[in-house]
Design a protein around this nucleic acid. Structure first.
Lengths: 340, 340
DNA sequence: CTGAAAGCGCTTACAG
DNA sequence: CTGAAAGCGCTTACAG
């Protein structure tokens, strides 16, 4: 920057102004500065401006994994919403481990982000404290918990589970199962587990057994997981009529296992997924699922953050600390009334 | 940090040493500092240390998209390899646009990363210049170009296309097609296009027509893309015997479209994918594909970077600027000799 | 083993 | 509309 100011014959302050807001500087001066920047190939140092201005324009996003289409969509939606305002995403992934989440939050805090987005409503005590003390906006996403630390953007996973059960019950099924991942100390998908809990509760309310809920393997779910968990379920309850999978990925894995076993879907077995991933629309038969708009969660979170961090007066500061984006049942070809 | 030094009764320099390398400080002093850090909940400010030490410990990773399982695997592999050494990934995505890539490189350079990883070997002139002048290690990944800017970790996409063609030809097919995405000014998958070019060249060498290569829709590919592109191909060449898809995602989309049309795979049509995504193993029939280890590309890149950035003397500095991770044909159930 | 001084490259908060 | 001074919170490069 000194080089630029020398070449343009102005002070560093003027160069700084041209970079921050060109209208602050008279046109002839501005042009000289621009030319100098061009000539020298000058790239401003945001590390220095961050330190000086106490704003990094970093937003931290902490997700369970990068390799799940839903979280990737959310990250992309979030990055897209923030891009115009020149924010840079700092992405960390926890692999569904609370200990790892704690480590990441600590490391991220040292980078002084302007806000933190975290895909969870369940944290260790230390994580909770760090988040509370951080003094920056915190947005918990993907599970609209009743009492967020600060803000929440998501939906009720528990209610998703209830809807799934109600749908399968309403079709006339009585022996209803589910497949999800195991709850372990190392890695737990708390959102998926919420869905299973809501599912089980609704079965019980209808006087149906909740014994056919298979929790197997550590999160994240995968096609392989779905195939294996379905095999376990079939072993435990060969006459199961319908199954809810905590994720479309598992649901498609289960569907493919059925193809291999010549189980006809939906005649012999109804399958209901969650997420409405691309594959749900394309697989054969097309997967019935519960849709949630992952990219929208990211976009809404980005908009919320911009409203907080860049108040321009036209939009009122958000007072709601909880934004429920909802979800929707999408019935396609893998669910029907029992035929056998 | 001043607070900590005051509470511990030492200079800031001593606090800094405890944080950087505790063994530099005598144990009693160190303990007092640690206690003070604990009590105050002090979190060091990496923005300041970055400015002062001229090292940010940021590594920039520029990828086409976050929502492709292969690139997500690479990002996760890279982050994993760098984690132990306390590097933070700065991820940007270009949506396959060279203009967007240029914008991102410029923005990233202002963050003063210690290295840049970029999933492409094709850039605009301005991007090339910025990268050349950056004065930090640059690793181009996912396409081991002959003349990388600095380092390259990947494989030859052109050779992948050649292998795909050789495999389908060797099975006895004569009318062979392919599906990929369109080359446009806005968004181009240069790696996919390389595969198609290698594929076409090999068909021609075998005196076969390369007229059945469908380039449709903008990248990235999707299940929908595969289904649509296969429909186009079938319209253009109803008697096509085998098809190579630039991505497993497109291949599975094509497979599902065949199911809907009652085209029996592989009897009526052989399908070969690329990438060996999870779904390839699970879909029915299981997809033949060309495997490339996306996570390994990330890990190898991370290891290369650590060797350069943190030379510890035990490992010699890398002299090879080009690391070819290779690929492998995986024949499963969707390819066979023509039966009809 | 510990500390005082200078400086990293910007922006803030004045002043004119 | 432009600039001189001070400072952001660390580390570097000494010195003792």
């Amino acid at each position: 920057m000194s080089d630029v100011s020398r070449l343009a014959g102005v002070s560093k302050m003027t160069v700084s102004r041209v970079l921050a807001d060109p209208t602050l500087v008279a046109e002839p001066t501005r042009n000289r500065v621009m030319t100098a920047i061009e000539q020298l190939g000058y790239v401003p140092d945001r590390t220095a401006s961050s330190l000086s201005s106490r704003r990094t324009n970093f937003i931290t996003a902490i997700l369970p994994t990068l390799t799940n289409a839903n979280f990737a969509d959310t990250a992309q939606g979030l990055a897209g919403a923030l891009r115009a305002a020149d924010y840079q995403l700092l992405i960390g992934y926890t692999l569904y481990s609370l200990a790892e989440e704690e480590r990441i939050v600590r490391a991220m805090l040292a980078r002084r982000p302007d806000a933190i987005v975290i895909a969870s409503a369940v944290h260790t005590k230390a994580t909770n404290e760090m988040l509370l003390r951080a003094g920056i906006p915190i947005v918990e996403i993907w599970d609209a918990s009743e009492h967020p630390i600060d803000h929440a953007v998501g939906f009720s996973n528990y209610e998703v589970g209830r809807l799934a059960a109600r749908h399968l019950i309403s079709l006339g099924h009585r022996r209803i199962g589910a497949i999800g991942s195991a709850v372990t100390a190392d890695a737990t998908d708390f959102r998926g587990e919420s869905r299973l809990l809501g599912f089980a509760a609704t079965l019980r309310e209808a006087d149906l057994s909740d014994d056919f809920i298979v929790r197997q393997n550590a999160a994240p779910s995968s096609y392989d997981h779905g195939a294996e968990a379905l095999s376990t379920l079939l072993q435990r309850a060969p006459d199961v009529q319908a199954v809810f999978a905590v994720s479309d990925i598992s649901a498609v894995g289960a569907l493919m296992e059925c193809h291999r076993r010549k189980i006809v879907i939906p005649d012999d077995l109804s399958i209901l997924g969650f997420g409405d991933f691309d594959i749900a629309r394309q697989c054969v038969p097309a997967l019935s699922t519960i849709r949630v708009d992952a990219a929208m969660i990211g976009r809404k979170t980005g908009e919320l953050l911009l409203a907080i961090l860049e108040p321009d007066g036209t939009v009122p500061q958000p007072t709601e600390s909880r934004l429920d984006v909802g979800f929707e049942l999408v019935t396609r070809e893998t669910t029907s009334a029992p035929k056998t």
